[in-house]
Amino acid sequence: MSGSLVGPAVQAETYTPDKLLLTDYPVITRTVTILAGQTIQRGHLLGRITASGKYIISLSAASDGSQTPCAIAADNITTGGSDASTGVFEAGEFNEAGVILGTAHTLASVRPALTARGIHLKAAVAA
């Protein structure tokens, strides 16, 4: 046999956990459309605009349906001048300290709507 023996290549990336997910509690994800002009970070609470079905950061003062949070952003995304698709969490158990609240929302104000959808916010407990 001629030639040299070549082993498998290994690629490494630095993993930095954000502790958004708390346990092995079942998580449900879905791909949604984010409205143009948004800069969203993983963990942002998102609301759905009733008329278009597109998602934006949930703000308490909104009146287009998005004032009620219904999902948590699974990834960072900047949409720029056009709508874009991204993944969201629609159910699961999440670290309340890892969730990013929109203007005028509090954990107490969002918890009922999220719990009704199967999104549970809990304080992380140190081991």
Rank of each mutant, 00 (worst) to 15 (best):
L59C: 11
I72F: 00
F89N: 04
A91C: 08
A97C: 11
I77H: 04
S85P: 06
G81A: 12
I100P: 00
I77Y: 01
D75S: 13
G92I: 09
T79D: 05
A84V: 04
A71V: 01
A84H: 04
Q67A: 02
G81R: 10
I100D: 07
N95H: 06
P69S: 09
I72R: 02
N95T: 11
I77D: 05
F94A: 06
S58P: 00
G92E: 05
T79F: 07
A71S: 08
S58N: 09
V99R: 06
D64Q: 06
I100L: 14
D64N: 15
A61F: 15
S82Y: 13
I100K: 08
S85K: 10
A84N: 10
T68L: 13
E96S: 12
A61L: 15
F89Q: 03
A91R: 12
I77N: 00
E93Y: 03
F89W: 14
E90K: 09
A84Y: 00
S63F: 11
V99W: 03
G65P: 04
G65K: 02
I56Y: 01
N76F: 04
S85V: 05
E90G: 02
I57D: 01
C70W: 07
A61V: 14
N76V: 03
N95S: 14
L59D: 13
A74F: 06
I77A: 08
L101T: 10
I77G: 03
D75P: 03
S63V: 11
D64H: 11
S60W: 11
A91E: 09
D83F: 09
A61Q: 15
G65Y: 02
P69G: 05
G98R: 05
I72G: 03
S82V: 15
V88D: 03
G92Q: 07
T68W: 09
S85L: 07
T78N: 14
A91V: 04
T68V: 15
D83S: 11
A74H: 10
A97D: 14
T78G: 12
A91K: 10
A62Y: 15
I57F: 09
A84Q: 12
T86N: 05
S63L: 11
G81L: 12
I100V: 14
G65L: 07
T86E: 05
A73H: 07
D83N: 15
G92A: 13
T68A: 13
N76C: 02
A74V: 00
G81M: 09
T79S: 10
G98T: 03
A61G: 14
F94I: 12
G65A: 08
E90H: 08
C70S: 14
T68R: 10
S60N: 12
S60G: 02
S58R: 06
A62I: 04
V88A: 07
T68K: 12
Q67I: 04
L59K: 12
V99Y: 00
A97E: 13
I100Y: 08
G81E: 08
S63D: 12
L101S: 12
L101I: 00
I100M: 10
A74R: 07
F94H: 03
A61I: 14
T79A: 09
N95D: 14
S63G: 13
T79K: 06
Q67P: 04
A73F: 06
